[in-house]
Design a protein around this nucleic acid. Structure first.
Lengths: 331, 331
DNA sequence: CGTATCTGTGTAAACGTTTACAACGTTTTT
DNA sequence: AAAAACGTTGTAAACGTTTACACAGATACG
């Protein structure tokens, strides 16, 4: 609550001098510095981040935004941890918001970020043509995309090689002898969905297997849609013998559907999921998944953002991390 | 980027008038109002939250803080969702931080909240005697505690009846015939731990069962400690036939330990956990747990905070929600 | 018709910083 | 010894708002 004014009064100097002491300016003689520092201590002075942010040019607020589509999804929670740790290490505060996979909420929070004059933001855009993010980009505030990319805007980006992950998952299933493989993908205009589907299709083609359109279903990344779509696939006249499920929550949903039908995994139906699950080992059965290095995605995104804040002119870079197939007992 | 100045210039009025239009003051004649509104639109004006916060008395920043011990713990993620939804509904922005169960990180983020002049904060204190929170309380910024309570400070509080939950869990185990029941609790000076232990002890006493000190172990709420402590208990000369594990992550750890030893649950050892798990049904076996209404805890905490912000004088209230025993197949 | 009241708008101060610039005393240079 | 340079500190403006107060014009009232 103590302001520069009060400190200055107590130390019998001007507010400018106090400010100089605070900002480590060398232009202050040891005596006065000592006096000021004592006053600082006595009043337990803490600078107002708000006043500082108002005064300073952008890029020095030490505040960045993170918008997450679903904080209850362990994949995003892990990204958030990566971002947060890197931010904390650099003494940046983090404005973390949850858009609930809703473009309106995303727009609302982007507005907040803008109006709070954050130094930059990290987010997985709603989809490839996200207009809200495009609009935000006009402000010139740095953006780093994670997980999902944008079709139009050129921003820094940290993503995972989704195509490769999908190919590996499919190669694994095909090697196990599966020929009828169902695909449960996410919202189709999200870049990750597109890449994973491409991996699915290319893998089939690469092994001379036919594509059956009815084996491909698009959900919304939520558990319930995994359950529903798995059921749809299993109700087919010629049901798949294996499922490739394109995110963690839908994988759990699909597993639940299989349990409910008393199908044995992997004997009756094999399952490979995308994204690791935190308690994979305790699941029944522990699922084979394509693990994404979510923590690193977050950490590197934040580091990229910090670099861009200090050096706004640098060309946008894309960091592509490698996923890893973790074979457990669902295949 | 457009400021009041620019809008005023374009509408050929003073900045005061623009401000009045924005704040719905009735003291402005329709004509000028229209002119101002047009300028507002043309420039796509958005007020700076920073400048506004600097100018206004506290309590009107429309910004609140939430400090969570572990955002990757589904229990806290659910609380966060509750807080966030209530905040969003009231058009409050949320500064969400993750303290990682570390008192230093908590102190850092409390500092940020203070320096950002938030209108109030929600958090589960590190422990009952949390000095960082006590210090924060001196600023007069409203605090609502969730989940855990404070011994000294009188703040609003939303908690769950932990004692009752523990009694129910224990009654259930005892009814199943268990007489040697191991306790895996969390950090001991956290209020929830104390209450759950009290429930454990009273339940034993209430059913005429002896207390065996060596059956009681304290962990740190993390999965690993659940695994380690379960192993310790099972290594006892006279091991327990049932485990009461006092949070979700430790329950998963305990389950993992049991699996590793090839013990059948519940035949060899029964398990009751505290906190529900998001994919409980997919776990092996689906665990019996004391479910806490985490979402409601968060939502009501935020609502309490909003009330306190608008009406700072009101006496602190405690909301106590009821847990629910969800019987699945681990008992 | 002069004064009081009301209505709408403008002026300026305030919030708490940072920083360009001025000011002043001291030291160096010529 | 006067001029120049330097080093330390203070003054004041600026960031973008809100709002108390002043002010001017219109309306009401005696």
């Amino acid at each position: 609550m103590a302001s520069l004014q009060e400190v200055a009064r107590r130390a019998k100097v001007s507010i400018a001098t106090v400010s100089r002491v605070l900002n480590r300016s060398d232009k202050v003689v040891p005596e006065t510095r000592a006096a000021v520092e004592q006053a600082l201590r006595e009043l337990d002075y803490r600078p107002s981040r708000v006043a500082r942010r108002l005064r300073m040019n952008s890029g020095r607020a030490h505040l960045v935004g993170l918008i997450i589509p679903d904080i209850q999804n362990p994949f995003y929670a892990e990204i958030a941890r990566g971002v947060e740790d890197a931010a904390y290490a650099a003494e940046y505060a983090l404005l973390l918001c949850n858009s609930d996979e809703s473009i309106d909420k995303e727009r609302f929070y982007l507005g907040v970020m803008r109006d709070e004059s954050v130094d930059g933001i990290v987010l997985p855009p709603f989809d490839e043509t996200d207009a809200a993010v495009a609009e935000f980009a006009k402000t010139g505030i740095p953006i780093v995309c994670v997980d999902r990319s944008l079709a139009q805007e050129k921003t820094d980006l940290v993503e995972v090689d989704n195509y490769r992950g999908a190919r590996e998952a499919m190669a694994h299933l095909i090697a196990k002898g599966h020929k009828q493989i169902g695909l449960i993908e996410g919202r189709s205009h999200v870049s990750t969905s597109r890449e994973r589907r491409r991996g699915y299709l290319d893998a089939l083609a690469g092994h001379g297997l036919p594509v059956r359109k009815e084996l491909m279903r698009a959900g919304d990344f939520k558990q319930e849609s995994g359950r529903v779509l798995a059921n749809e696939l299993l109700d087919l006249r010629k049901p798949p013998t294996a499922l490739f499920v394109c995110n963690n929550l839908m994988t759990v949903g699909a597993l639940a559907a299989l349990h409910q039908r008393d199908l044995r995994v992997p004997r009756d139906v094999a399952v490979v999921g995308f994204d690791d699950l935190p308690w994979a080992e305790a699941l029944d059965p522990p699922p084979t998944v394509v693990r994404q290095p979510a923590y690193d995605v977050g950490r590197q995104a934040m580091e990229l953002l910090l670099k861009r804040i200090t050096e706004p002119g640098r060309p946008p870079v894309t960091v592509r991390l490698l996923p890893e197939l973790v074979v457990r007992r669902s295949t």
